[in-house]
Design a protein around this nucleic acid. Structure first.
Length: 570
RNA sequence: CGGGACGUGGCGCAGCUCGGUAGCGCACCUGCUUUGGGAGCAGGGGGUCGGGAGUUCAAAUCUCCCCGUCCCGACCA
Protein backbone atom coordinates (compact mmCIF):
# COMPACT_ATOMS: atom_id res chain seq x y z
CA UNK A 1 0.00 0.00 0.00
CA UNK A 2 1.11 3.51 -0.73
CA UNK A 3 0.14 6.02 1.90
CA UNK A 4 -0.47 8.62 -0.79
CA UNK A 5 -3.42 6.52 -1.97
CA UNK A 6 -4.73 5.66 1.47
CA UNK A 7 -7.57 7.42 3.22
CA UNK A 8 -6.17 7.96 6.68
CA UNK A 9 -7.68 11.19 7.99
CA UNK A 10 -5.56 11.75 11.09
CA UNK A 11 -6.47 14.58 13.41
CA UNK A 12 -4.34 16.69 15.62
CA UNK A 13 -7.04 17.09 18.22
CA UNK A 14 -9.29 14.41 19.60
CA UNK A 15 -12.99 15.10 19.27
CA UNK A 16 -14.20 16.91 22.35
CA UNK A 17 -16.78 14.31 23.29
CA UNK A 18 -14.38 11.37 23.34
CA UNK A 19 -13.40 10.22 26.78
CA UNK A 20 -11.85 6.77 26.51
CA UNK A 21 -8.29 6.51 25.19
CA UNK A 22 -9.29 3.98 22.55
CA UNK A 23 -12.11 6.23 21.37
CA UNK A 24 -9.84 9.25 21.05
CA UNK A 25 -7.09 7.36 19.28
CA UNK A 26 -9.39 5.52 16.89
CA UNK A 27 -10.88 8.82 15.77
CA UNK A 28 -7.58 10.72 15.74
CA UNK A 29 -5.82 7.94 13.90
CA UNK A 30 -8.45 7.85 11.19
CA UNK A 31 -9.71 4.35 12.01
CA UNK A 32 -13.35 5.18 12.68
CA UNK A 33 -15.95 7.92 12.26
CA UNK A 34 -19.25 8.19 14.03
CA UNK A 35 -22.50 8.11 12.09
CA UNK A 36 -24.75 8.36 15.12
CA UNK A 37 -24.57 7.35 18.75
CA UNK A 38 -23.53 3.71 18.84
CA UNK A 39 -22.93 3.35 15.11
CA UNK A 40 -19.47 3.80 13.63
CA UNK A 41 -18.04 3.61 10.16
CA UNK A 42 -14.81 1.66 9.95
CA UNK A 43 -12.28 3.41 7.73
CA UNK A 44 -9.53 1.53 5.88
CA UNK A 45 -7.19 1.26 8.85
CA UNK A 46 -10.07 0.23 11.07
CA UNK A 47 -11.03 -2.47 8.63
CA UNK A 48 -7.47 -3.74 8.45
CA UNK A 49 -7.24 -4.14 12.20
CA UNK A 50 -10.70 -5.64 12.49
CA UNK A 51 -9.84 -8.16 9.80
CA UNK A 52 -6.66 -9.16 11.54
CA UNK A 53 -8.46 -9.59 14.84
CA UNK A 54 -11.09 -11.59 13.01
CA UNK A 55 -8.44 -13.83 11.51
CA UNK A 56 -6.83 -14.53 14.87
CA UNK A 57 -10.20 -15.51 16.28
CA UNK A 58 -11.03 -17.59 13.22
CA UNK A 59 -7.72 -19.48 13.46
CA UNK A 60 -8.31 -20.44 17.04
CA UNK A 61 -11.94 -21.39 16.68
CA UNK A 62 -11.12 -23.46 13.61
CA UNK A 63 -8.38 -25.10 15.66
CA UNK A 64 -10.95 -26.49 18.09
CA UNK A 65 -13.10 -27.76 15.26
CA UNK A 66 -15.33 -24.79 14.63
CA UNK A 67 -17.07 -24.53 11.26
CA UNK A 68 -17.82 -21.10 9.90
CA UNK A 69 -21.37 -20.14 8.99
CA UNK A 70 -23.03 -16.88 8.06
CA UNK A 71 -26.60 -16.48 9.23
CA UNK A 72 -29.00 -13.67 8.42
CA UNK A 73 -29.13 -10.67 10.68
CA UNK A 74 -32.80 -10.09 9.98
CA UNK A 75 -35.11 -12.69 11.46
CA UNK A 76 -38.82 -13.27 11.53
CA UNK A 77 -40.10 -12.20 14.94
CA UNK A 78 -41.90 -15.51 15.22
CA UNK A 79 -38.69 -17.41 15.85
CA UNK A 80 -38.00 -15.20 18.84
CA UNK A 81 -41.54 -15.71 20.03
CA UNK A 82 -40.97 -19.44 19.88
CA UNK A 83 -37.96 -19.22 22.21
CA UNK A 84 -39.76 -16.73 24.40
CA UNK A 85 -36.94 -14.25 24.16
CA UNK A 86 -38.87 -11.56 22.35
CA UNK A 87 -40.26 -10.74 25.79
CA UNK A 88 -37.11 -11.19 27.84
CA UNK A 89 -35.00 -9.13 25.46
CA UNK A 90 -37.68 -6.53 25.24
CA UNK A 91 -36.71 -3.05 24.22
CA UNK A 92 -33.17 -4.10 23.40
CA UNK A 93 -34.32 -5.65 20.13
CA UNK A 94 -34.72 -3.58 17.02
CA UNK A 95 -37.99 -4.48 15.39
CA UNK A 96 -39.52 -3.63 12.07
CA UNK A 97 -42.36 -4.64 9.80
CA UNK A 98 -41.84 -5.65 6.20
CA UNK A 99 -44.07 -4.67 3.28
CA UNK A 100 -46.22 -7.73 3.76
CA UNK A 101 -46.87 -6.72 7.33
CA UNK A 102 -44.70 -9.47 8.78
CA UNK A 103 -42.91 -8.64 12.03
CA UNK A 104 -39.15 -8.75 11.75
CA UNK A 105 -36.32 -8.29 14.21
CA UNK A 106 -32.64 -7.52 13.85
CA UNK A 107 -30.71 -10.28 15.56
CA UNK A 108 -28.90 -9.42 18.77
CA UNK A 109 -27.55 -12.99 19.01
CA UNK A 110 -28.12 -16.20 17.07
CA UNK A 111 -29.03 -19.11 19.34
CA UNK A 112 -32.46 -19.37 17.75
CA UNK A 113 -31.21 -19.41 14.20
CA UNK A 114 -28.36 -21.84 14.76
CA UNK A 115 -30.73 -24.14 16.60
CA UNK A 116 -33.10 -24.03 13.67
CA UNK A 117 -30.33 -25.03 11.29
CA UNK A 118 -29.22 -27.71 13.71
CA UNK A 119 -32.64 -29.36 13.72
CA UNK A 120 -31.62 -31.06 10.50
CA UNK A 121 -29.21 -33.23 12.47
CA UNK A 122 -30.88 -36.33 13.83
CA UNK A 123 -28.15 -38.75 14.90
CA UNK A 124 -25.71 -38.77 17.80
CA UNK A 125 -23.13 -39.85 15.25
CA UNK A 126 -23.09 -36.31 13.90
CA UNK A 127 -22.23 -34.84 17.29
CA UNK A 128 -20.43 -32.94 18.60
CA UNK A 129 -20.64 -29.80 16.48
CA UNK A 130 -19.10 -26.38 16.97
CA UNK A 131 -20.60 -23.78 14.70
CA UNK A 132 -19.62 -20.17 14.51
CA UNK A 133 -19.85 -17.01 12.48
CA UNK A 134 -18.83 -13.37 12.35
CA UNK A 135 -22.03 -11.44 12.01
CA UNK A 136 -23.44 -8.04 12.82
CA UNK A 137 -25.48 -7.88 15.98
CA UNK A 138 -27.99 -5.17 16.69
CA UNK A 139 -28.75 -4.17 20.24
CA UNK A 140 -30.72 -1.11 21.10
CA UNK A 141 -28.50 -0.23 24.01
CA UNK A 142 -29.85 2.33 26.41
CA UNK A 143 -26.50 4.03 26.51
CA UNK A 144 -23.85 3.46 23.87
CA UNK A 145 -20.49 4.82 24.98
CA UNK A 146 -16.75 5.12 24.61
CA UNK A 147 -16.39 4.71 20.87
CA UNK A 148 -16.27 1.04 19.94
CA UNK A 149 -16.54 -0.20 23.50
CA UNK A 150 -20.31 -0.15 23.63
CA UNK A 151 -22.32 0.26 20.45
CA UNK A 152 -25.68 -0.66 19.00
CA UNK A 153 -24.36 -2.35 15.88
CA UNK A 154 -21.26 -4.50 16.00
CA UNK A 155 -19.60 -7.59 14.61
CA UNK A 156 -19.50 -10.52 16.97
CA UNK A 157 -17.86 -13.85 16.68
CA UNK A 158 -20.48 -16.11 18.14
CA UNK A 159 -20.04 -19.83 18.39
CA UNK A 160 -22.34 -22.54 19.61
CA UNK A 161 -21.57 -26.07 20.63
CA UNK A 162 -24.01 -28.94 20.35
CA UNK A 163 -23.40 -32.10 22.32
CA UNK A 164 -25.29 -35.21 23.24
CA UNK A 165 -24.59 -34.88 26.97
CA UNK A 166 -23.06 -32.78 29.74
CA UNK A 167 -19.65 -34.38 29.35
CA UNK A 168 -19.58 -33.26 25.76
CA UNK A 169 -20.59 -29.74 26.72
CA UNK A 170 -17.89 -29.65 29.37
CA UNK A 171 -15.31 -30.54 26.74
CA UNK A 172 -16.59 -27.91 24.30
CA UNK A 173 -16.56 -25.35 27.08
CA UNK A 174 -13.00 -26.11 28.08
CA UNK A 175 -11.92 -26.06 24.44
CA UNK A 176 -13.42 -22.61 24.03
CA UNK A 177 -11.93 -21.37 27.22
CA UNK A 178 -8.48 -22.41 26.05
CA UNK A 179 -9.05 -21.05 22.55
CA UNK A 180 -10.08 -17.72 24.05
CA UNK A 181 -6.95 -17.60 26.16
CA UNK A 182 -4.85 -18.12 23.04
CA UNK A 183 -6.81 -15.47 21.19
CA UNK A 184 -6.28 -12.82 23.84
CA UNK A 185 -2.61 -13.66 24.14
CA UNK A 186 -2.24 -13.15 20.39
CA UNK A 187 -4.18 -9.90 20.57
CA UNK A 188 -1.80 -8.60 23.19
CA UNK A 189 -4.34 -8.14 25.95
CA UNK A 190 -4.20 -9.64 29.40
CA UNK A 191 -7.64 -11.11 29.70
CA UNK A 192 -8.55 -13.24 32.67
CA UNK A 193 -11.49 -15.57 32.85
CA UNK A 194 -13.73 -14.62 35.74
CA UNK A 195 -16.88 -16.14 37.16
CA UNK A 196 -19.88 -14.36 35.79
CA UNK A 197 -23.60 -14.20 35.73
CA UNK A 198 -25.04 -15.36 32.44
CA UNK A 199 -27.61 -12.60 32.52
CA UNK A 200 -30.50 -12.40 30.13
CA UNK A 201 -29.01 -15.05 27.86
CA UNK A 202 -29.71 -17.77 30.39
CA UNK A 203 -27.47 -20.71 31.19
CA UNK A 204 -25.34 -22.15 33.94
CA UNK A 205 -21.55 -22.04 34.09
CA UNK A 206 -20.46 -18.69 32.83
CA UNK A 207 -17.04 -17.16 32.36
CA UNK A 208 -16.31 -13.64 31.23
CA UNK A 209 -12.93 -12.61 29.91
CA UNK A 210 -11.93 -9.35 31.48
CA UNK A 211 -9.20 -6.86 30.65
CA UNK A 212 -8.41 -4.42 33.43
CA UNK A 213 -8.99 -0.89 32.23
CA UNK A 214 -10.48 2.29 33.62
CA UNK A 215 -12.56 2.48 30.45
CA UNK A 216 -14.35 -0.73 31.38
CA UNK A 217 -17.87 -0.99 32.63
CA UNK A 218 -17.61 -3.98 34.90
CA UNK A 219 -16.20 -4.33 38.37
CA UNK A 220 -14.26 -7.48 39.04
CA UNK A 221 -13.31 -8.83 42.45
CA UNK A 222 -9.82 -10.27 42.25
CA UNK A 223 -7.74 -12.06 44.81
CA UNK A 224 -4.06 -11.39 44.44
CA UNK A 225 -3.22 -14.36 46.65
CA UNK A 226 -5.09 -17.30 45.17
CA UNK A 227 -6.28 -15.99 41.80
CA UNK A 228 -10.00 -16.07 42.53
CA UNK A 229 -11.73 -13.61 40.22
CA UNK A 230 -15.40 -12.92 39.73
CA UNK A 231 -17.60 -10.24 38.32
CA UNK A 232 -19.06 -8.25 41.17
CA UNK A 233 -22.42 -9.40 39.85
CA UNK A 234 -21.72 -12.70 41.48
CA UNK A 235 -18.55 -12.38 43.52
CA UNK A 236 -18.71 -13.68 47.07
CA UNK A 237 -16.59 -12.68 50.02
CA UNK A 238 -16.21 -13.46 53.67
CA UNK A 239 -16.73 -10.84 56.35
CA UNK A 240 -15.97 -10.83 60.05
CA UNK A 241 -18.73 -11.88 62.41
CA UNK A 242 -20.36 -9.14 64.43
CA UNK A 243 -20.94 -9.39 68.13
CA UNK A 244 -24.57 -8.51 68.71
CA UNK A 245 -24.56 -9.25 72.41
CA UNK A 246 -27.44 -10.95 74.12
CA UNK A 247 -30.69 -11.21 72.15
CA UNK A 248 -33.33 -8.82 73.45
CA UNK A 249 -36.46 -10.43 74.82
CA UNK A 250 -38.67 -8.51 72.44
CA UNK A 251 -38.62 -5.72 69.90
CA UNK A 252 -39.03 -2.15 71.02
CA UNK A 253 -40.45 0.77 69.06
CA UNK A 254 -38.71 4.08 69.44
CA UNK A 255 -39.22 7.49 67.87
CA UNK A 256 -36.80 8.69 65.20
CA UNK A 257 -38.19 11.98 63.95
CA UNK A 258 -36.75 12.99 60.59
CA UNK A 259 -34.50 9.95 60.31
CA UNK A 260 -34.60 8.68 56.73
CA UNK A 261 -31.25 7.11 56.03
CA UNK A 262 -28.97 4.43 57.41
CA UNK A 263 -26.42 7.10 58.18
CA UNK A 264 -28.89 9.25 60.07
CA UNK A 265 -30.08 6.27 62.08
CA UNK A 266 -26.48 5.46 62.95
CA UNK A 267 -25.94 8.96 64.28
CA UNK A 268 -29.21 9.59 66.10
CA UNK A 269 -29.51 9.11 69.85
CA UNK A 270 -30.64 5.55 70.50
CA UNK A 271 -29.86 4.45 66.92
CA UNK A 272 -27.46 1.75 65.84
CA UNK A 273 -24.28 1.44 63.80
CA UNK A 274 -24.92 0.63 60.14
CA UNK A 275 -23.78 -2.97 60.52
CA UNK A 276 -26.37 -3.38 63.28
CA UNK A 277 -29.19 -2.21 61.03
CA UNK A 278 -31.36 -4.05 58.54
CA UNK A 279 -31.78 -2.27 55.22
CA UNK A 280 -35.19 -2.96 53.73
CA UNK A 281 -35.60 -2.53 49.98
CA UNK A 282 -38.85 -2.87 48.09
CA UNK A 283 -38.77 -4.16 44.53
CA UNK A 284 -41.23 -5.32 41.96
CA UNK A 285 -40.11 -8.71 40.65
CA UNK A 286 -42.14 -9.38 37.52
CA UNK A 287 -44.79 -7.20 39.08
CA UNK A 288 -44.76 -8.90 42.48
CA UNK A 289 -43.96 -6.67 45.42
CA UNK A 290 -41.00 -8.15 47.30
CA UNK A 291 -38.92 -7.16 50.31
CA UNK A 292 -35.15 -7.48 50.12
CA UNK A 293 -33.12 -7.32 53.29
CA UNK A 294 -29.41 -6.61 53.57
CA UNK A 295 -27.22 -5.36 56.36
CA UNK A 296 -27.31 -1.60 56.78
CA UNK A 297 -23.77 -1.06 55.51
CA UNK A 298 -24.13 -3.51 52.59
CA UNK A 299 -25.34 -2.97 49.06
CA UNK A 300 -27.79 -5.13 47.24
CA UNK A 301 -26.38 -6.80 44.11
CA UNK A 302 -29.41 -6.86 41.87
CA UNK A 303 -27.93 -9.34 39.43
CA UNK A 304 -27.66 -11.94 42.17
CA UNK A 305 -31.34 -11.55 42.84
CA UNK A 306 -32.14 -11.84 39.15
CA UNK A 307 -30.02 -14.96 38.80
CA UNK A 308 -31.68 -16.41 41.89
CA UNK A 309 -35.27 -15.71 40.94
CA UNK A 310 -35.12 -15.72 37.17
CA UNK A 311 -37.14 -12.54 37.24
CA UNK A 312 -37.36 -10.75 33.92
CA UNK A 313 -38.40 -7.31 35.05
CA UNK A 314 -36.96 -5.96 38.26
CA UNK A 315 -37.79 -2.43 39.28
CA UNK A 316 -37.62 -0.51 42.53
CA UNK A 317 -41.11 0.15 43.84
CA UNK A 318 -42.30 3.73 43.84
CA UNK A 319 -43.08 5.65 47.05
CA UNK A 320 -46.85 5.39 46.56
CA UNK A 321 -46.69 1.63 46.12
CA UNK A 322 -44.50 1.30 49.17
CA UNK A 323 -46.68 3.57 51.28
CA UNK A 324 -49.81 1.62 50.50
CA UNK A 325 -48.18 -1.78 51.03
CA UNK A 326 -46.21 -1.08 54.19
CA UNK A 327 -47.80 2.03 55.63
CA UNK A 328 -44.62 4.07 55.59
CA UNK A 329 -42.23 5.73 53.19
CA UNK A 330 -38.64 4.67 52.53
CA UNK A 331 -36.60 5.59 55.58
CA UNK A 332 -38.83 3.84 58.06
CA UNK A 333 -39.37 0.50 56.37
CA UNK A 334 -38.95 -2.88 57.94
CA UNK A 335 -39.94 -6.49 57.47
CA UNK A 336 -40.96 -7.28 61.05
CA UNK A 337 -44.53 -8.48 61.08
CA UNK A 338 -44.83 -8.47 57.29
CA UNK A 339 -46.57 -11.66 56.18
CA UNK A 340 -48.22 -10.85 52.88
CA UNK A 341 -45.07 -10.08 50.90
CA UNK A 342 -42.30 -12.39 49.83
CA UNK A 343 -39.11 -11.65 51.77
CA UNK A 344 -35.56 -12.35 50.60
CA UNK A 345 -32.79 -11.84 53.11
CA UNK A 346 -29.04 -11.76 52.66
CA UNK A 347 -27.05 -14.46 54.41
CA UNK A 348 -25.11 -11.86 56.37
CA UNK A 349 -28.28 -11.30 58.39
CA UNK A 350 -28.66 -14.92 59.39
CA UNK A 351 -28.57 -15.41 63.14
CA UNK A 352 -28.29 -11.70 63.85
CA UNK A 353 -30.00 -10.35 66.95
CA UNK A 354 -30.47 -6.96 68.57
CA UNK A 355 -30.85 -5.37 65.16
CA UNK A 356 -32.50 -2.09 64.34
CA UNK A 357 -34.86 -1.52 61.44
CA UNK A 358 -37.79 0.59 60.34
CA UNK A 359 -41.15 0.16 62.09
CA UNK A 360 -43.27 0.74 58.98
CA UNK A 361 -44.47 3.98 60.48
CA UNK A 362 -42.83 7.22 59.47
CA UNK A 363 -40.44 8.52 62.15
CA UNK A 364 -40.41 5.25 64.08
CA UNK A 365 -37.92 2.39 64.20
CA UNK A 366 -37.62 -0.94 65.99
CA UNK A 367 -34.69 -2.14 68.02
CA UNK A 368 -34.02 -5.50 69.57
CA UNK A 369 -34.93 -7.33 66.40
CA UNK A 370 -33.85 -10.96 66.15
CA UNK A 371 -33.90 -11.55 62.44
CA UNK A 372 -34.90 -15.19 62.37
CA UNK A 373 -37.36 -14.84 65.26
CA UNK A 374 -39.07 -11.64 64.16
CA UNK A 375 -38.99 -11.73 60.37
CA UNK A 376 -40.72 -14.28 58.16
CA UNK A 377 -37.89 -14.70 55.67
CA UNK A 378 -38.93 -16.81 52.68
CA UNK A 379 -35.51 -17.16 51.06
CA UNK A 380 -32.00 -16.78 52.42
CA UNK A 381 -29.43 -16.08 49.78
CA UNK A 382 -26.23 -14.23 49.05
CA UNK A 383 -27.62 -10.94 47.83
CA UNK A 384 -25.01 -8.44 48.86
CA UNK A 385 -22.35 -6.93 46.67
CA UNK A 386 -18.86 -7.93 47.69
CA UNK A 387 -16.56 -5.05 48.45
CA UNK A 388 -12.85 -4.34 48.15
CA UNK A 389 -10.96 -5.34 51.26
CA UNK A 390 -13.36 -8.10 52.23
CA UNK A 391 -11.97 -11.61 52.48
CA UNK A 392 -11.60 -13.86 49.46
CA UNK A 393 -14.12 -16.65 49.79
CA UNK A 394 -11.50 -19.14 48.66
CA UNK A 395 -8.43 -18.19 50.66
CA UNK A 396 -9.54 -15.39 52.98
CA UNK A 397 -7.01 -12.82 51.79
CA UNK A 398 -8.36 -9.30 51.03
CA UNK A 399 -10.02 -8.81 47.66
CA UNK A 400 -9.29 -6.07 45.17
CA UNK A 401 -12.07 -4.63 43.02
CA UNK A 402 -10.97 -3.36 39.62
CA UNK A 403 -12.67 -1.92 36.55
CA UNK A 404 -12.52 -4.13 33.50
CA UNK A 405 -13.67 -4.47 29.92
CA UNK A 406 -15.58 -7.62 29.11
CA UNK A 407 -13.91 -8.85 25.94
CA UNK A 408 -15.56 -12.22 25.77
CA UNK A 409 -18.15 -14.39 27.40
CA UNK A 410 -18.58 -18.14 27.32
CA UNK A 411 -21.33 -20.05 29.02
CA UNK A 412 -23.16 -23.28 29.16
CA UNK A 413 -26.53 -22.70 27.66
CA UNK A 414 -28.12 -25.99 28.48
CA UNK A 415 -31.15 -27.27 26.61
CA UNK A 416 -33.22 -24.13 26.64
CA UNK A 417 -33.19 -23.68 22.88
CA UNK A 418 -33.09 -27.26 21.72
CA UNK A 419 -36.10 -27.88 23.95
CA UNK A 420 -37.94 -24.80 22.80
CA UNK A 421 -37.46 -25.82 19.19
CA UNK A 422 -38.20 -29.48 19.82
CA UNK A 423 -34.79 -30.62 18.63
CA UNK A 424 -33.79 -34.20 19.37
CA UNK A 425 -31.21 -36.63 18.04
CA UNK A 426 -31.27 -40.38 18.42
CA UNK A 427 -28.68 -41.94 20.70
CA UNK A 428 -27.00 -45.33 20.27
CA UNK A 429 -30.02 -47.01 21.83
CA UNK A 430 -32.38 -45.31 19.40
CA UNK A 431 -33.74 -43.09 22.14
CA UNK A 432 -34.35 -39.43 21.34
CA UNK A 433 -32.09 -37.08 23.28
CA UNK A 434 -32.26 -33.32 23.54
CA UNK A 435 -28.80 -31.96 22.66
CA UNK A 436 -27.12 -29.57 25.06
CA UNK A 437 -25.64 -26.29 23.92
CA UNK A 438 -22.92 -23.85 24.81
CA UNK A 439 -22.63 -20.27 23.64
CA UNK A 440 -19.43 -18.29 23.18
CA UNK A 441 -18.98 -14.70 22.08
CA UNK A 442 -16.31 -12.14 21.30
CA UNK A 443 -17.12 -8.65 20.07
CA UNK A 444 -14.59 -7.76 17.38
CA UNK A 445 -14.81 -3.97 17.68
CA UNK A 446 -14.67 -4.10 21.44
CA UNK A 447 -11.62 -6.35 21.21
CA UNK A 448 -9.97 -3.78 18.93
CA UNK A 449 -10.71 -1.05 21.48
CA UNK A 450 -9.44 -3.21 24.33
CA UNK A 451 -6.16 -3.81 22.50
CA UNK A 452 -5.69 -0.05 22.28
CA UNK A 453 -6.67 0.49 25.90
CA UNK A 454 -3.88 -1.91 26.82
CA UNK A 455 -1.35 -0.82 24.19
CA UNK A 456 -0.81 2.90 23.76
CA UNK A 457 1.43 5.74 24.86
CA UNK A 458 1.48 9.52 24.61
CA UNK A 459 2.16 9.39 20.87
CA UNK A 460 -0.67 7.04 20.01
CA UNK A 461 -1.43 3.40 19.51
CA UNK A 462 1.15 0.66 19.88
CA UNK A 463 -0.21 -2.32 18.00
CA UNK A 464 0.97 -5.83 18.56
CA UNK A 465 2.32 -7.08 15.24
CA UNK A 466 -0.48 -9.63 14.89
CA UNK A 467 -3.18 -7.01 14.55
CA UNK A 468 -1.35 -3.86 13.44
CA UNK A 469 -2.91 -2.14 10.43
CA UNK A 470 0.51 -2.50 8.80
CA UNK A 471 3.54 -4.30 10.11
CA UNK A 472 6.08 -1.91 8.65
CA UNK A 473 6.04 1.64 7.35
CA UNK A 474 8.74 2.87 5.03
CA UNK A 475 8.98 6.59 5.58
CA UNK A 476 10.54 8.45 2.70
CA UNK A 477 11.80 11.69 4.15
CA UNK A 478 12.14 13.47 0.83
CA UNK A 479 10.06 12.04 -2.00
CA UNK A 480 11.55 14.46 -4.48
CA UNK A 481 14.90 12.75 -3.99
CA UNK A 482 15.18 10.13 -6.73
CA UNK A 483 17.70 7.99 -4.94
CA UNK A 484 15.49 7.83 -1.84
CA UNK A 485 12.48 6.70 -3.82
CA UNK A 486 14.50 4.18 -5.73
CA UNK A 487 15.79 2.53 -2.56
CA UNK A 488 12.37 2.75 -0.94
CA UNK A 489 10.66 1.12 -3.89
CA UNK A 490 13.18 -1.71 -3.88
CA UNK A 491 12.79 -2.45 -0.17
CA UNK A 492 9.04 -2.05 -0.46
CA UNK A 493 8.98 -4.66 -3.24
CA UNK A 494 11.26 -7.00 -1.29
CA UNK A 495 9.14 -6.80 1.83
CA UNK A 496 5.95 -7.40 -0.11
CA UNK A 497 7.50 -10.36 -1.84
CA UNK A 498 8.39 -11.77 1.57
CA UNK A 499 4.79 -11.43 2.72
CA UNK A 500 5.31 -8.46 5.02
CA UNK A 501 2.33 -6.14 5.38
CA UNK A 502 4.10 -2.92 4.51
CA UNK A 503 3.00 0.61 3.67
CA UNK A 504 5.17 3.00 1.75
CA UNK A 505 4.76 6.53 3.05
CA UNK A 506 5.35 8.33 -0.23
CA UNK A 507 3.37 11.40 0.67
CA UNK A 508 4.91 14.71 -0.24
CA UNK A 509 4.84 15.90 3.32
CA UNK A 510 7.32 16.95 5.90
CA UNK A 511 9.17 14.24 7.78
CA UNK A 512 7.75 15.33 11.11
CA UNK A 513 4.22 14.89 9.87
CA UNK A 514 4.94 11.40 8.64
CA UNK A 515 6.73 10.36 11.80
CA UNK A 516 3.88 11.63 13.93
CA UNK A 517 1.28 9.82 11.82
CA UNK A 518 3.23 6.56 11.87
CA UNK A 519 3.40 6.75 15.64
CA UNK A 520 -0.22 7.77 16.05
CA UNK A 521 -1.51 4.84 14.05
CA UNK A 522 0.94 2.56 15.82
CA UNK A 523 2.83 0.73 13.10
CA UNK A 524 5.33 -1.58 14.83
CA UNK A 525 8.38 -0.77 12.68
CA UNK A 526 9.39 2.32 10.82
CA UNK A 527 12.19 2.32 8.29
CA UNK A 528 13.30 5.84 7.53
CA UNK A 529 14.86 6.57 4.15
CA UNK A 530 16.41 9.94 3.50
CA UNK A 531 19.41 11.53 1.84
CA UNK A 532 21.28 11.73 5.09
CA UNK A 533 21.16 8.01 5.69
CA UNK A 534 21.73 7.08 2.08
CA UNK A 535 24.95 9.00 2.07
CA UNK A 536 26.18 6.89 4.96
CA UNK A 537 24.74 3.73 3.44
CA UNK A 538 22.56 3.30 6.51
CA UNK A 539 18.85 3.44 7.13
CA UNK A 540 17.20 4.09 10.46
CA UNK A 541 14.93 1.46 11.88
CA UNK A 542 12.66 2.36 14.81
CA UNK A 543 10.60 -0.01 16.86
CA UNK A 544 7.34 1.61 17.87
CA UNK A 545 6.82 -0.20 21.14
CA UNK A 546 10.22 0.54 22.65
CA UNK A 547 11.35 3.51 20.62
CA UNK A 548 14.61 1.64 20.07
CA UNK A 549 16.52 2.94 17.05
CA UNK A 550 19.10 1.09 15.07
CA UNK A 551 20.94 1.62 11.81
CA UNK A 552 20.78 -1.03 9.14
CA UNK A 553 22.70 -1.27 5.92
CA UNK A 554 20.61 -0.59 2.83
CA UNK A 555 21.20 -4.05 1.44
CA UNK A 556 20.17 -5.85 4.61
CA UNK A 557 17.24 -3.65 5.61
CA UNK A 558 14.61 -5.84 4.00
CA UNK A 559 15.94 -9.11 5.34
CA UNK A 560 16.34 -7.66 8.84
CA UNK A 561 12.76 -6.53 8.81
CA UNK A 562 11.44 -9.81 7.46
CA UNK A 563 13.24 -11.57 10.26
CA UNK A 564 11.91 -9.24 12.94
CA UNK A 565 8.35 -9.40 11.67
CA UNK A 566 8.36 -13.16 11.43
CA UNK A 567 9.76 -13.47 14.92
CA UNK A 568 7.08 -11.20 16.32
CA UNK A 569 4.09 -12.83 14.65
CA UNK A 570 2.20 -15.44 16.58
C1' C B 1 -35.27 5.70 32.15
C1' G B 2 -33.29 9.30 36.33
C1' G B 3 -29.27 13.12 36.91
C1' G B 4 -25.59 16.59 34.54
C1' A B 5 -23.28 19.06 30.34
C1' C B 6 -22.93 20.49 25.43
C1' G B 7 -24.49 21.67 20.02
C1' U B 8 -20.99 27.90 15.89
C1' G B 9 -16.85 25.62 8.33
C1' G B 10 -13.61 18.78 8.41
C1' C B 11 -11.26 18.99 13.91
C1' G B 12 -10.45 22.12 18.35
C1' C B 13 -12.53 26.60 20.19
C1' A B 14 -14.06 32.21 20.96
C1' G B 15 -18.38 35.26 20.35
C1' C B 16 -23.98 34.66 23.90
C1' U B 17 -23.79 37.77 30.20
C1' C B 18 -25.20 43.37 27.83
C1' G B 19 -29.25 41.53 20.38
C1' G B 20 -26.68 45.23 15.35
C1' U B 21 -25.94 40.06 10.67
C1' A B 22 -19.69 35.47 12.49
C1' G B 23 -14.18 35.12 14.13
C1' C B 24 -9.40 32.37 15.76
C1' G B 25 -5.94 27.95 15.50
C1' C B 26 -5.34 23.43 12.76
C1' A B 27 -6.82 21.24 8.12
C1' C B 28 -7.90 22.54 2.67
C1' C B 29 -6.58 25.31 -2.43
C1' U B 30 -2.71 28.62 -5.29
C1' G B 31 2.26 30.73 -5.43
C1' C B 32 7.18 31.39 -3.55
C1' U B 33 10.78 29.89 0.01
C1' U B 34 11.77 25.69 2.96
C1' U B 35 12.50 20.24 3.75
C1' G B 36 15.54 13.97 9.20
C1' G B 37 10.18 15.53 14.24
C1' G B 38 3.38 18.26 13.17
C1' A B 39 7.41 24.83 8.31
C1' G B 40 7.30 30.39 6.89
C1' C B 41 5.25 34.30 3.99
C1' A B 42 1.43 36.00 0.63
C1' G B 43 -3.22 35.16 -1.52
C1' G B 44 -7.82 32.18 -1.40
C1' G B 45 -12.28 28.70 -0.75
C1' G B 46 -15.69 26.84 2.64
C1' G B 47 -20.42 28.06 7.90
C1' U B 48 -28.93 26.92 7.13
C1' C B 49 -24.51 29.35 14.15
C1' G B 50 -28.65 21.52 15.50
C1' G B 51 -34.17 22.29 13.89
C1' G B 52 -38.87 24.90 14.43
C1' A B 53 -41.79 28.63 16.47
C1' G B 54 -41.87 33.28 19.18
C1' U B 55 -40.15 38.40 21.00
C1' U B 56 -37.80 42.54 18.23
C1' C B 57 -36.72 47.46 13.37
C1' A B 58 -32.88 43.64 14.06
C1' A B 59 -31.50 36.97 16.98
C1' A B 60 -25.51 32.79 17.05
C1' U B 61 -26.98 35.97 21.31
C1' C B 62 -33.49 36.51 24.60
C1' U B 63 -38.11 32.87 25.32
C1' C B 64 -40.59 28.14 24.33
C1' C B 65 -40.79 23.35 22.03
C1' C B 66 -38.23 19.55 19.54
C1' C B 67 -33.81 16.90 17.87
C1' G B 68 -28.88 15.33 18.49
C1' U B 69 -24.26 14.24 21.19
C1' C B 70 -21.38 13.19 25.54
C1' C B 71 -20.72 12.02 30.82
C1' C B 72 -22.58 9.64 35.73
C1' G B 73 -26.17 5.69 37.55
C1' A B 74 -29.92 0.79 36.32
C1' C B 75 -28.45 -3.27 31.13
C1' C B 76 -24.33 -6.43 27.88
C1' A B 77 -19.73 -8.82 23.19
Amino acid sequence: MRWSNLFVPTLRDAPADAEAVSHKLLVRGGFIRQLQSGHYSLLPLGVRVAQKVTQVIRDEVEAIGGQEFLLPCMHPASIWEKSGRIDTMGAEMFTLVDRKGADQVLGMTHEEIFTTVFSEISSYKDLPQIWYQFQTKFRDEPRPKAGLLRVREFTMKDSYSFDIDEAGLDAAFVAHREAYERIYARLGVEARGVEASSGAMGGSESVEFMVNSPAGEDDVAQCGACGYAANLERATSVIPAIDDGEAAGSTERFPTPGVRTIKALAEVEGGAAAERQIKTLVYLLDGELTLLLVRGDHNLELQKLIDLTGAVTVNPAGPETIQSALGALPGSLGAVGVSDLKIYADLALKGRVNMTTGANEDDWHLRGVSVERDIAVDHWADLRRADAGEGCSVCGKPLDVLRAIEVGHIFKLGRKFTEAFGVTVLDADSNPQVPIMGSYGIGVGRAVAAVIESNHDDEGMVWPVNVAPFEVVITVVKVADEKSMEVAEQIYADLRAAGVDVVLDDRDARAGVKFADAELVGIPWRLTIGPRGLEAGQLELVERATGAKSDVAIESAASTLVESVNAARS
